[in-house]
């Protein structure tokens, strides 16, 4: 079942998928946060999201908002408060489209 779904995703849009899961050399700011020199956009998102969860950075009054600590600020444009909804877009900024 799953491989087939995977196959479909690839045949549907191979570029979009590679953009999501290809390993990319990270810029220095991100490298410090992730602790690796290479990761995929998906991996990076997962890392940031789990960082938010483990450090309880969601606003207790409004869970949709993340209150950034210094470390998070450094990679999210220095914003103090970030909406969860814009998280994927903010991370995308570190992964410019035209590579190679």
């Amino acid at each position: 079942m799953l491989p087939q779904r995977m196959k479909k995703a690839i045949t549907d849009n191979p570029k979009k998928l590679s953009n999501l899961i290809d390993l990319v050399n990270l810029p220095s700011t991100l490298r410090e946060f992730v602790g690796q020199s290479q990761t995929s956009r998906l991996g990076c998102f997962m890392r940031v999201w789990s960082y938010i969860k483990t450090n309880n950075l969601q606003d207790s009054n409004n869970k949709n908002v993340v209150i950034c600590d210094e470390k998070l600020k450094s990679i999210l444009l220095g914003k103090a408060r970030v909406e969860l909804a814009e998280l994927p877009d903010l991370i995308k900024l570190h992964f410019p489209k035209s590579r190679k």
Partner: peptide, 19 residues
Amino acid sequence: SLTDVAAYTTLESTLKWLK
């Protein structure tokens, strides 16, 4: 239930739509 990719792609496109 889903692959990471499938789950994330859905979430991302939904958030895009929300914006």
